[in-house]
Write a protein that binds this DNA or RNA. Structure first.
Length: 257
DNA sequence: ATGGCGGCTCGCAGCCGA
């Protein structure tokens, strides 16, 4: 059994102790991190290595920044999308145990009338083209991270209030569907097609306590991998910590190789 | 209708996230 997780930590500097204790408890083989908000050489990696993890980092101060931690050798590390020129560090790909791991921090979009929304849509098209390239190889793909898209209304605590907003808008959901059309599977929804589940809750207005959240952190797998996927869970306990990230980790367990 | 919170920055207020 192999376990692969994703977690938007909203500053690795602040959250490193929580990441370390989470790794000790859950022992994932692979963990994809987003929103490091720290430059590559500034990330404190010693304690992570001491837990047995190899680390690839595409860091950036202030915003963005992604990393892949793995208990198994990491090869063919690639930073950024080859299909979309971007100064923001949002993508880190690598091969681990014969899997193509693609760690993404999709742009937020801010609001649908902003330039950042156009950037988000163009970025998602770049991601689609990149994944289409990868799909031509035999290596199965796991795309995971913060997609900043709630695909369906059961991924939104109050669909009426969110209607048409960024994160749920039609064009974003079309971009999401275009990823699935490549032959990728939203493994959480495949294993639990109905029940609402969220991965992000606003810090404000006691949103977590009231379970006012969105499911925007996802794990997509190649169709060929889907039958091997046994379980996906959102670790809401991580959101209960003192000074938590506003995102909870998502953890996939699969029979591999 | 607004801002709520929490992270960042050569900070001490403003930007951004989602």
């Amino acid at each position: 059994m192999l376990s692969i997780a994703t977690w938007n930590v909203n500053s690795i500097k602040i959250r490193l102790p929580q990441v370390l204790s989470w790794l000790e408890v859950h022992q994932p083989d692979i963990l994809a991190l987003q929103e490091l908000k720290q430059d590559t050489h500034c990330v404190e990696t010693e304690a992570l290595r001491a837990l047995g993890y190899q680390i690839a980092i595409a860091g950036q101060p202030t915003y963005n920044g992604v990393a892949i931690l793995s208990k198994h050798p990491i090869t063919n590390v690639r930073i950024n999308l080859p299909t979309f020129s971007d100064p923001q560090q949002r993508v880190l790909s690598a091969e681990v145990l014969g899997l193509n791991i693609v760690n993404v921090y999709v742009p937020n979009g801010q609001s649908i009338d902003s330039e950042k929304y156009q950037y988000k849509l163009a970025w998602l098209e770049g991601l689609r083209q990149y994944l289409q390239m990868l799909q031509t190889h035999d290596t199965p793909i796991v795309v995971l991270g913060d997609f900043n898209i709630a695909p369906h209304n059961n991924d939104v605590h109050d669909p009426l209030a969110w209607e048409g907003q960024v994160l749920v808008s039609e064009r974003e959901r079309e971009a999401w569907q275009a990823l699935l059309n490549l032959g990728l599977v939203d493994i959480y929804r495949t294993l639990d097609p109905v029940n609402p589940m969220y991965t992000w809750w606003d810090y404000r207005q006691m949103a977590f306590r009231r379970n006012h959240g969105l499911r925007i952190d996802h794990i997509l797998v190649s169709k060929s991998l889907a039958p091997q996927c046994k379980n996906v869970c959102v670790d809401k306990d991580a959101r209960k910590h003192e000074r938590p990230s506003d995102h909870a980790p998502v953890l996939l367990t699969l029979a591999w190789p």
